[in-house]
Amino acid sequence: MSSSIGDNIKISVFGESHGKAIGCVIDGLPAGVKLDMDAVYKDMSRRAPGKDKTATPRLEKDIPHILSGVLDSTTTGAPLAMMIENTNTKSGDYSNLMTVPRPSHSDYPAFVKYNGFNDIRGGGHFSGRLTAPIVFAGAVAKQILAQKGIIVGAHIKQIGSVCDTAVDYNDISVDMLNKLSSMTFSVVDESVEEKMRAEVEKARLNLDSVGGVVECFAVGLPAGVGGNIFDAVESKLASILFGIPAVKGVQFGLGFDFADKNASKVNDEYEIKDGKVATLSNNNGGVLGGMTDGAPVVVSVAFKPTPSIASKQRSVNLQTMQNAELEIKGRHDPCIVPRAVPVVEAAVAIGLLDLMM
């Protein structure tokens, strides 16, 4: 099991959903970085459960306890270790999953790989709860990037069939990103929030769940960050983004929408603007040949519907090796997309900082 990532900034995540605590260790941070802990707490709060009908009612305060690497709110250069206590668990709700795995969840392959010794409670180490340490690490990364003039922000692009307004990929403002990062329900067009919430509520009342897309932007990056082949910006960011539970698709710029286009319609042509080379459009999402081209980096992340739903589902009993019917108990998100926005921001910030270092 590998729970570490990074070349220059190394991050290791530990803990289980219903264990005593979760946390992370960040190695490679520069010394002397003053951290705004209020900003860290704000990002943690945006991800935390139990505050909205679109999320699980499990209430966790997600207060990070810094164990090392910070003195007087300033990084020391030593590994930054952080821990979050788990205080609101109902492990008994998961007892039947030891023998009857959830469809579309990690339960069955994890049972096989770890010979049944994996912690199934709340998903264990496979739980979305482990994104809390990622958000912490990302909040730190965002502050270091901001000192370099790089700002990261994201919005809910889609929930079910409801979409946020499209934005000009070549004209992403810092003000918009800062506003999105301050919202608990991050949308560009605030009038779509009610429709998105209605989509989630419809799924919840039908004992179901619904998926969606988070779109993330990074502005202020110079041209030439990253590299080709396996050092590509896309591959670096995607490897972190796919570490977020329920992520099933990642695309940059137009992504799959390139497939039915002609180059003459989607090539990002150049111009001289304010004495510098600039692109007239940004269909490639700010990345060419694996390297940033100076335009905003744009990445969209698709989340599948939460597999833990209250409707009865077909499964198998791993003890009797007979077909079985599964009725899932416990507290689960009818849609994880709103809470996933700060997680995607964090993943992108971590990846970009690693590349910048």
Rank of each mutant, 00 (worst) to 15 (best):
E199V: 11
A21G: 01
S161P: 13
V167F: 15
N88R: 05
P296I: 04
I120P: 05
G290C: 10
G253S: 10
V343S: 04
D208T: 01
V187D: 02
V297E: 05
I26H: 02
L145R: 02
L355S: 00
G28W: 01
D354G: 01
I336M: 07
G32K: 03
S264W: 07
I336F: 00
T74E: 10
V348N: 06
P296K: 09
I5H: 14
Y94D: 03
A48C: 12
F217V: 04
G6F: 00
G290Q: 06
V152A: 11
A166L: 15
D260R: 09
P101D: 11
T131I: 07
V210I: 14
S73L: 13
K20C: 03
Y270V: 11
D72N: 14
G289R: 06
G289Q: 06
S281T: 15
G224V: 07
S68K: 03
P101Y: 04
S239W: 11
L237G: 12
N228V: 06
D36R: 09
I159N: 08
I328C: 13
G153W: 06
I240V: 15
K195E: 12
K20W: 03
R314A: 15
V40T: 01
D208G: 01
D62S: 05
I66C: 08
K157F: 12
G289Y: 04
E269H: 14
G6D: 01
D43V: 08
S311L: 10
E271V: 10
I66N: 02
D36E: 11
G243S: 10
R102H: 02
K51A: 07
I350W: 02
L352A: 01
N206A: 12
I328P: 04
V298L: 09
D257E: 15
E327S: 13
R129D: 00
D260M: 09
N283C: 07
G294I: 03
P49C: 09
S106A: 14
K273E: 15
S127Q: 02
F14V: 05
V344A: 08
N8E: 12
K113W: 07
T76Q: 08
V188R: 10
V174Q: 08
F258T: 08
D293G: 06
A198W: 01
G15M: 02
T279P: 10
K261Y: 10
F252L: 12
V70W: 00
I66D: 09
E190W: 05
V25Q: 03
E325D: 13
V140R: 01
G23S: 04
R102N: 01
G153R: 07
V200G: 03
K42I: 09
G69F: 03
I328L: 14
V348A: 11
S17P: 04
S68L: 06
D62W: 11
T75P: 03
K276Q: 10
V225R: 02
R121H: 08
V298T: 12
D268R: 04
V298W: 13
E327H: 10
D164N: 09
D208W: 02
L59F: 13
V174R: 08
I172R: 06
R204T: 00
R197I: 02
T165M: 15
I144N: 02
N178D: 12
L288D: 12
N267C: 07
S300D: 06
P307K: 05
L318V: 15
A347M: 12
